[in-house]
């Protein structure tokens, strides 16, 4: 990217960040909503795991708390939701403002969501201290420290996977105009097949089988598993490889849908 382009996209990020700071209350409320995962699910699993002798399928209390705490981190910082914003802009015709300008719309949307995540992250910081304490209290995750580089890499690769799937869902608005149903299916299936409700080892095996054929598992469950449990190196490498394949496939798919969608765009409301 040239210096000029860097400046261009940095300014977009800065202006969107300014705009998001105007609506910091919105970001704060959604951050709290994502914390609910930690407030409910771990305690249900503590009860079940303790009743089963302290471990089920390799998952103990310590791993479970780390899993859900990092789920909140992932939701607040990594997993972007451009679909609603894109759908709104296409539906309202505001999208026209972007297609006439010499910049990449998808990159703009990415920066838009990044700026929003930054505000969410700032709101999340005060909650990090009690969450770190909770991890320490329940035994911590020191055992996974040697796989830290893989955890960071898997988390970074999770970002484009989830972003591209969400962007494709947003693009359905080119055809559906009101893509609310598509978005709801996406939210439900990303939760279920991404492992947001529980690790796959604690769920019916059929879910894992279906999830393995979908990208959500590699955007949510895979990085969470790496941070919660010790994982054999071969499995980590295989997971990272699958993440890269998903990124490439989703990139190609989103490019095709984008080109076809632009031809369908009817600029209604403008």
């Amino acid at each position: 990217m040239t210096d000029r382009n860097m400046r261009k996209y940095w300014t977009i990020f800065r202006v969107v960040l300014e705009n998001n700071l105007m609506y910091r209350g919105h970001a704060f409320v959604w951050m709290l909503f994502d914390l609910l995962w930690i407030g409910v699910f771990p305690f249900i699993w503590f009860f079940i795991i303790n009743a089963q002798g302290g471990e089920i399928q390799g998952w103990n209390n310590s791993a479970i708390i780390v899993y859900y705490v990092f789920m909140a981190v992932l939701s607040n910082i990594v997993l972007m939701h451009p679909e609603a914003h894109m759908a709104y802009e296409i539906y309202e015709g505001k999208f026209s403002n972007y297609v006439i300008k010499p910049h990449s719309y998808l990159l703009y949307v990415f920066l838009h969501e990044s700026a929003y995540k930054m505000v969410r992250f700032l709101a999340f910081i005060p909650f990090a201290v009690p969450l770190i304490w909770a991890i320490q209290h329940f035994g911590g995750s020191g055992a996974v420290l040697p796989q830290l580089p893989f955890i960071i890499l898997a988390t970074l690769l999770a970002m484009p996977i989830f972003f591209l799937v969400a962007a494709i869902i947003g693009m359905t608005c080119f055809w559906l105009e009101d893509s609310y149903a598509a978005r709801t299916i996406f939210w439900a299936s990303s939760g279920l097949f991404g492992g947001q409700y529980a690790p796959f080892e604690l769920m019916p095996p059929i879910l894992n089988t279906v999830a393995s054929a979908l990208p959500f598992k590699y955007a949510i469950y895979f990085p969470l598993r790496l941070i919660s449990q010790q994982v054999p190196r071969a499995e980590m490498l295989r997971g990272l490889g699958i993440q890269l394949v998903w990124i490439a496939a989703l990139f190609v798919l989103s490019s095709i849908i984008w080109k076809k969608g632009l031809k369908r765009y009817s600029a209604v409301g403008r």
Binding site: R4, R7, K8, W10, T11, I12, V15, E18, N19, M22, Y23, G93, K94, S96, N97, I100, K101, P102, H103, G269, R270
Partner: peptide, 29 residues
Amino acid sequence: FAIVMGQKNQLWWDLPAMDSFILNKEIYE
């Protein structure tokens, strides 16, 4: 080229107009 639509706007609603100008300055180099 540029297009101006009287019924819709390209300016950022919650920011001063100058912010939108600066944004366009960078976008259009």
